[in-house]
Design a protein around this nucleic acid. Structure first.
Lengths: 196, 196
DNA sequence: GTGTATTTTAAACGCTTGTTTAAAATTAAA
DNA sequence: TTTAATTTTAAACAAGCGTTTAAAATACAC
């Protein structure tokens, strides 16, 4: 019970403000528990964060695997994969931006190492999807798979920056309309690169 | 003299470690000056950062304007614009990643407001380039200009994440070879979207 | 009900942060 | 050389951080 309260408060705050800007006291206040309980249940702030990250990325990977294992044509699988990532990034954009940024912080060795390990499992699943669609000759072979994956993430992360959302958003465009536009744009751009 | 020493030390550290992870004492040590001199010359850490950001973005904007004012065909201008941004982002990737991230931190109002103002001047210059190439009928009209710009930044930021560089990089690929690959990929992808 | 483990609490610890202070040193002007 | 203004210094300030402690409260087994 206490652990769950801490986890959910911490997830909310990490997503909103990132790791550095979230203090354990913030978390304790929102979770309505004593500060010391965070260290009692999770040993450290770092451990708490890794627990949350692992939960989140595991859920994503399960979705990817299930798409991969399905019998859709590659085009439809691609659409679904893009949708999964768009959902993830748009719903928790600050959190994922933080993950991205923290991954290149040369200081926090341990945190970074652990994060890289978790993240790369998911990337592998994505790459596997494209490569098997290439083997079944649904996608072109002469493409830079890695840079295509980077392009998708790049578009999603870039458009979810709050300031850029406003800038790149059409006037009076609603959140979900904007997300749909980005999703469609990314899907079509990727398909144009991949489809034979 | 002292101001310059502080500026150059601060630029180096902000680029390496971001804003939060750079303390004024770090800066003072590297610049070999007393800590108090930072506040004496720049009033605050925040002001110091903004001074550096402004310098850097002004230089970029000048390059963009000069490309815009040149007489190259739109295709060549695009290649040059991509090169300018690739140079900027690859050479100072941690710094720009931090700027991106900090721009969406809802806490630091003042810093964010000031940064947005500086950044948006540069984005406007970029958009202006594409739109004038559309008017001269060198580029297609029915494209989502904002999302195309977002795509370029997205690719550059994404591929410069240190951990992703390693992941997306071909085995044994050198830094400059990787950058050239990304630059070419981005240029061709954008051209494919824009060219008639 | 008694005794043992687990959980929670308030308080403090040690450290780092950006900034300020007031005196000392340096520079420039008269 | 004297005076005033500028720059540099060491020290301290106040606030925030993650974490630890030792006692109090609660839960659970026998």
């Amino acid at each position: 019970m206490t652990s769950e309260k801490i986890l959910s408060a911490a997830r909310k705050l990490f997503e909103q403000k990132g790791y550095d800007n979230t203090s354990v006291r913030d978390i304790a206040t929102l979770a309505d528990v004593n500060v010391a309980l965070i260290n009692y249940h999770f040993e450290s702030k770092e451990n708490l964060f890794l627990a949350i990250l692992e939960q989140s990325l595991d859920a994503t990977r399960m979705k990817l695997t299930s798409i991969n294992d399905g019998s859709d044509p590659a085009e439809e699988k691609l659409r679904k994969v893009v949708a999964v990532y768009a959902e993830k990034v748009f719903s928790h954009c600050q959190f994922y931006h933080f993950v991205q940024r923290e991954l290149q912080n040369p200081d926090r060795h341990k945190l970074r190492e652990h994060m890289t390990r978790i993240v790369s499992k998911n990337n592998k699943e994505f790459k596997h999807f494209i490569e098997s669609a290439q083997e079944s000759k649904e996608f072109k072979k002469d493409v830079d798979v890695d840079l295509i994956i980077a392009t998708l993430f790049g578009i999603l992360y870039q458009t979810t920056h709050e300031f850029i959302s406003k800038r790149y958003r059409k006037p009076n465009e609603k959140d979900d309309a904007f997300r749909a536009r980005v999703e469609k744009f990314a899907y079509e751009l990727l398909l144009l690169q991949l489809k034979k």
